[in-house]
Amino acid sequence: MKLAVSVPPHIKLDDTIASINWTKIAVLIPVCMVSIYVFGIDVLSILLISVFSALITEAAIQKLQNQELTIKDGDAVLIGLILGLLLPPTVPLWIPVMGAFFAVALVKHAFGGLGSTLFNPAIAGLVFLNMSWTVLMGVDSVPHLGQYSDIMLELGAGRLIEVSPFALIGGLYLIHKKYIEWRIPLTYLLTTIVLAVLIGEDLSYVFTGMLMLGVFILAADPATSPITKNGRIIYGIFCGILTVLYGYFSYNYGLAVIFTIFFANAVSPFIEKNTYPKPVDEVMA
């Protein structure tokens, strides 16, 4: 047997940042295909422009700062893809360029790059676009799952991501591979549904593709959610409460998920700080 002396960590897995990010992208691919089918081939240009602007911004920033180019790790692609999926299909093509620039330059790299982001870049990009060009970002319709086939194919979708909640089922694979932890998705989904039922909300408005994206990809993003186990449970419940609160007042459960996770990201360091495990026999200062 051949033994090698090496520096720690000694656990060897094939999981890298790149493999995690590309798996997440693969999970989103079915939804992209369905939305191209529903909205037409123009949607493909929105997605591609969004992805390429994110990549170019990242490459330019890393070149300017003399850093190693990390566009192959898929993080910029993921940001661009999520941002593109959150847009309505009617936007002019310069909108994803602005959004991807804001997301990658000011929310990802100004905060220290990969793994240091305080807010989810794609969400921040969408909120920025929403505040700056409200009219252009308006959606034509709000998804409503009137019948069971709408879970597969929702023709009343207002945003690309909302076309098919079922197409995001690949999120379960992420949990299976432990690329995201089960605590946040489970508590978020359960809290949202239980609260919505309790206040008598129509579940067919609550359960959209946006919620699935929020549960599986956005809320459970490891950089922007708490690292402690209890903190994650609190975070998930917090997200659920806020989503129902916003949806109750606005009747828009899609935007509710976006604004909720944006706000919850801001609270996440506070939750994390207050749920650190206490040392045993701590000496009181």
Partner: peptide, 10 residues
């Protein structure tokens, strides 16, 4: 800035 965006929107 980002905190304020979160507050105003939510």
């Amino acid at each position: 800035t980002l905190l304020s965006m979160a507050f105003v929107n939510f």
